[in-house]
Design a binder for these strands. Structure first.
Lengths: 346, 346
DNA sequence: TTGTACGCGTTATCAC
DNA sequence: GTGATAACGCGTACAA
C-alpha cells in the first residue's frame, strides 16, 4: 500500500521545454548559431538563419529566461512598488492610469512587471527581493515621507519615482507634475469665481505631493490677498473626502469654495454638500485634482486640474528602460504640465 | 574626443552581489555547505552552520534567483492574468480584493506576482512568456467566453481560474461562487419586498458569471410566478450601469425593483434614479452583487449579495501553490458561499 | 560565417 | 558531516 507515493513535482502532461540544443540539432547547426539567430545577430547567412527559424517555429522554442538572466545578469523584470494599502492603491483610478501607462511602454519591450503592493513599510523579504537581482529596476509610487526605505531602495537598484520624494540627495529619477502650480491654478479658479472663503481638503501630509498642493493653495490665496479658509485632511480616499467635508461644514468657518487635493476625495466630498441641499457651484464651488475617472462620478461633473497620469506611467517606464540600457542622457527629473479642466463644479 | 564612449551597462556604484562562493570562502567551508545551510538542510553541524550564517549576514548574501531557477526548473513567480482593459480592471474594487487576497497568501511564500493585464486577447508575446517557464503558474480572472486562449493557457501551465470558464473539459482549477444561487437570493429579496416588476441590469454575457446571474434572476422569478421585467446589459462598469438604468427607465416597462449584477454598476445606476426623484427603495428597490467597496458609495447604502472576494483571491493563490508543490488532493473546483447583506436599497 | 568551450550561481549526487 | 563535481540553458570570446 503506497501510502506515501511521491507526487509528481511537475504537472502531468506538460512537455519539457525545447532547448537551444534541440533546435540546433534539428536545424543541423550549433547552439551558438541558433543563439545568434534568436538574438538577431547580423552575422549569420540567410539560408542558415531561415532553417533555424523554421526549427524554432516547429519546436515552439522559447528562450529560457532563467538561463538568459544568469548569463546576462539581467532579469528583464521591473517592479512596481507601492508602499500602500492594496485597497487604497486600487481604489484610486489615478493609479490605474499609471499602471496603464507603464504597461503600454512595456508592451513592446521584453520587460515584465512585478507588482509589489507593500502594506506599510516593505519587509525585509521585499527588500531582499528587490536588491537581490530579481528585478533590474523599480518604479516607486505612492511613497510617504516616513518611508525609511526610500534611501535603501535607491541604493539597491535603479529607481524611478512617481512623485518627488521628500528625501533629497537620492540617486534616482523622478517623474512628477508641478503640484504647487497646479494647486495654485485650481485655487485661482475659485477666487476668480468670486469665492472668498476657500477651504482645503488636503492629502496626507506624509506625501510630498500633498504638501506641495497645500503650498500652492496658500500661495494663490496670498497673491490675491484672500484669507485662508479651513484645512482638513482627507487622506486621499473617498471616505476621507466625505469625512473631511463633514468636518469642514461643522466647523465655525463658512466656506464658499473648496479645493480638494484629489478627485477621489472630491467624489466623496460632493455628495455631502448635495445631501445638505448646498448647491454646487452656486453655494460652494469645488475644484479637484487629477482628472481621474472619479471626476465624472462625483455627482456633479468636476472642475479639476488634469495631470497626465497615463503619460506619467509611460514616462517612468521609459526612463527606467533607458537607464537600464545604459543610456547616458536621461534627465533626472521630468516635470509634466498640468491643465485646468473646467466642468460644472466651479 | 570620445564621442561614442561606451556607457556602463550597470548603474555605477552598485556592488556586485555576493555569491555562494564568496560566502563559502569567508566561512571557510565549501559552496555545498553554504547551500545546505541556506536551504535549511539538517545534516550540517551547528557550529559550522552558525559560522556560515554569520558570513551570510555580514556579506548580505541573497541567493541568485536566476541560478536557482535554472537548476530547480521553477521560477517562483506566478502571473495574474486579466484579459481586460486596465481601467476596467482597476475600476472595479472587486479585483482590488482579489489582488489583496492573492497578495496576502503570497506574502509568506517565496512567490512573487507578475501582473499581466492584457487588453483584449493576450498577444503571442504574452503566451510565449506564460508558456516559456517564466512563471510557474497563473491565476486568470475576468475572462470572457470568447477568449480562445483559455485552452491554450491551460495547456501551457497550471492555471487557477477566478470564475468558472465557459469552456469545459479544461485541465484546470476553479474558484467561484454559486452565481445562480446568489442572484436568485437577491431577486427573492425583491419579491419578498413586494416588487412585481423586477428588471435586471446584467453583466457582459461573454462571461459565465454574468450568464449565471441572469439564470438565477429568472429562476427566482419563475419560482414565484412573477413575470420577468426588462433586461439591459450594463457591462460591469459604472458608466454601463448608468446607461443601462437610463435605458430601462425609458423603456415602456415600468419597474419597481432591479437586480443589478454588480455593485459597481449599481453605483452608476442609483444616481439616475435619485436624479429623477425616484425614491429608493420605496419606488424602486435595488439589490447589487459583490459587496465591494462600491456598495457604500452608491448614494444609498446598497443591499447586495456578498461574495468573499478577498478570500477568493487567497484561495486561488493557495490552490496554485499547492498544485505547484505537487500536492495531490487539491479540489478541482471550490465554490464559496454568498450571503445577502441587507442595507437600505432593498 | 560558423563552431568550440567556458562561465554565469545554484542544487544535487556522489564519494570521502 | 563535508567537499568535489556535474548538470541546468544560455551568451559570447575565441578559434577555425
Amino acid at each position: 500500500m503506497p501510502a506515501d507515493e511521491d507526487p509528481p513535482v511537475t504537472a502531468p502532461g506538460r512537455h519539457p521545454a525545447p532547448t537551444l540544443e534541440l533546435v540546433a540539432a534539428r536545424a543541423g547547426v550549433s547552439r551558438a548559431t541558433v543563439s545568434r539567430v534568436v538574438n538577431g545577430s547580423p552575422s549569420v547567412s540567410p539560408p542558415i538563419a531561415a532553417a533555424v527559424r523554421r526549427a524554432v517555429q516547429e519546436l515552439g522554442y522559447v528562450p529560457n529566461r532563467a538561463a538568459r538572466s544568469l548569463v546576462s545578469q539581467q532579469s528583464q523584470a521591473i517592479a512596481l512598488v507601492a508602499p500602500e494599502d492594496v485597497n487604497r492603491f486600487f481604489g484610486d483610478l489615478f493609479f490605474a492610469d499609471i499602471v496603464s501607462g507603464i504597461d503600454s511602454r512595456l508592451e513592446d519591450s521584453d520587460y515584465v512587471l512585478n507588482l509589489m503592493i507593500a502594506n506599510h513599510e516593505p519587509s525585509g523579504k521585499t527588500m531582499r527581493y528587490l536588491g537581490g537581482g530579481a528585478v533590474d529596476g523599480a518604479i516607486v509610487v505612492s511613497h510617504h515621507t516616513s518611508d525609511r526605505f526610500l534611501r535603501r531602495i535607491t541604493e539597491a537598484l535603479p529607481v524611478v519615482f512617481g512623485g518627488r520624494p521628500s528625501v533629497s540627495g537620492l540617486d534616482t529619477y523622478v517623474v512628477d507634475v508641478d503640484n504647487v502650480a497646479g494647486a495654485a491654478t485650481a485655487t485661482r479658479r475659485l477666487i476668480e469665481r468670486g469665492c472668498r472663503r476657500i477651504g482645503l481638503i488636503a492629502g496626507p501630509l506624509t506625501m510630498q505631493g500633498s504638501i506641495d498642493r497645500v503650498t500652492g493653495w496658500r500661495q494663490a490665496l496670498d497673491e490675491a490677498g484672500v484669507e485662508a479658509g479651513p484645512v482638513v485632511d482627507g487622506d486621499f480616499t473617498m471616505f476621507g473626502g466625505t469625512a473631511a467635508m463633514r468636518e469642514m461644514l461643522e466647523g465655525r468657518d463658512r466656506v464658499d469654495g473648496v479645493f480638494v487635493a484629489s478627485d477621489l476625495m472630491a467624489a466623496g466630498a460632493i455628495p455631502v454638500l448635495l445631501d445638505r441641499g448646498i448647491r454646487i457651484p452656486d453655494d460652494v464651488a469645488v475644484v479637484g485634482f487629477d482628472d481621474s475617472a472619479a471626476a465624472l462620478t462625483a455627482g456633479v461633473p468636476l472642475t479639476t486640474v488634469r495631470q497626465p497620469s497615463r503619460e506619467m506611467g509611460w514616462r517612468m517606464a521609459d526612463i527606467l528602460i533607458k537607464v537600464l540600457a545604459g543610456q547616458a542622457d536621461v534627465p533626472r527629473e521630468l516635470i509634466l504640465p498640468t491643465e485646468l479642466v473646467v466642468r460644472e463644479s466651479a
